[in-house]
Nucleic acid binder design. Structure first.
Lengths: 189, 189
DNA sequence: GCCACCCTACCGACCGGTCGGTATGCTCAC
DNA sequence: GTGAGCATACCGACCGGTCGGTAGGGTGGC
């Protein structure tokens, strides 16, 4: 639960990282945009690096929680896949900046944090994979295309969203989420 | 047709940009890796920036040529989509580093070059879109999911390839290309 | 009631180091 | 001799991070 100043700093950092990239954004730019000073930033964060990590952490935490909640509902595989994709697409559409930073600057994570991150992503990936595989085993889904490729495609689409989704475009996130879920499920029948 | 020195510089730049990112890679690192000197680099390129642009140009030119060639064959929509995806996936798998740089550092392009790039990508996108729309109009494809969303998904998958494809993995590019094409076509039936 | 003491939150000038780019000159093929 | 193809030494701008200091609110002893 970040305080007001902390939040202002993170918000400004997300905006600037998304539009210019991490390295191209100076700490001075961040504090100017957030209307605080360098002292304030280094009071709350040990390094510029920590800002990136905090952005990732907030995003991953919320996505994992969403998926766990949906799986907890115990719906059939088709419904589960639809709900997971829909929630992922809408939440990503609401946070395009965070996701853009996430996708683009991921490799900048240090050794330790990268290990943590990979473990978390692996968990997410395999949870989703298990849903698809169960659907295939039960005969609800076709097995023509291997489950891992399907999962890769589905999650890849979401990561690419920031590249072309525009909040002021014609399609609302909900409509788009429906279309993407339709398409993926069509490929699974 | 770049000369030998020029090529060495570009190769080194691609490798370093892919593993560390553009900003995190210094010009000195590039020339050291390429076993040339700064003088040589600035003899062939006006700025570090130009290296990025050259990497993009080479990639886009070859992809556009591939697509034009395939469409020129005049195959049915289904076959055309399969061929385009297959060639895109295999050529991307062969050039993961270039694609990774492309996806990650695109936003760094200056105003003018960004405009040029957008025009080229738009052309690529709409050519592909036309194929899908024709397939839908002819009744070969279903129209449940709008053509533009399908194209977005298909191209998005390819852009995400560098995130998870490993040349030393179990699946060859050709096998993977087949699976991706199968999946997309399944969603179009 | 009040003052001494402390602590959190924040300020902003400053530093060492790095980076992209340049200026100048050599060398060798034609 | 002359221009393409480099090599080398160097510059000024900027960047992440530090550090001595301050403002103001809480708290306990008397």
């Amino acid at each position: 639960m970040p305080g007001a100043t902390e939040q202002k700093i993170i918000d400004a950092a997300v905006r600037l990282f998304a539009s210019q990239g991490y390295d191209a954004t100076s700490v001075q730019e961040i504090v100017t945009a957030a209307q605080v000073t360098k002292g304030a930033l280094y009071h709350y964060f040990r390094a510029k690096d920590d800002l990136l990590f905090e952005i990732y952490r907030l995003l991953i935490t919320s996505q994992s929680a969403d998926m766990d909640r949906i799986i907890g509902l115990g719906l059939p595989a088709g419904e589960t896949v639809r709900e997971i994709l829909a929630s992922l697409v809408t939440s990503t559409a609401e946070r395009v900046d965070e996701t853009a930073v996430f996708v683009r600057e991921l490799h900048r994570l240090g050794e330790d944090r990268m290990t943590d991150f990979r473990a978390e992503r692996r968990r997410y990936h395999e949870t989703f994979l298990a849903v698809v595989e169960k659907g295939q085993a039960d005969g609800e889904f076709s097995s023509v295309v291997p489950a891992d490729t399907v999962v890769r495609i589905a999650l890849g689409v979401v990561n690419q969203l920031p590249m072309w989704f525009r909040p002021d475009g014609q399609k609302t996130p909900a409509v788009l989420a429906g279309e993407i879920a339709d398409f993926v499920l069509a490929g699974l029948r």
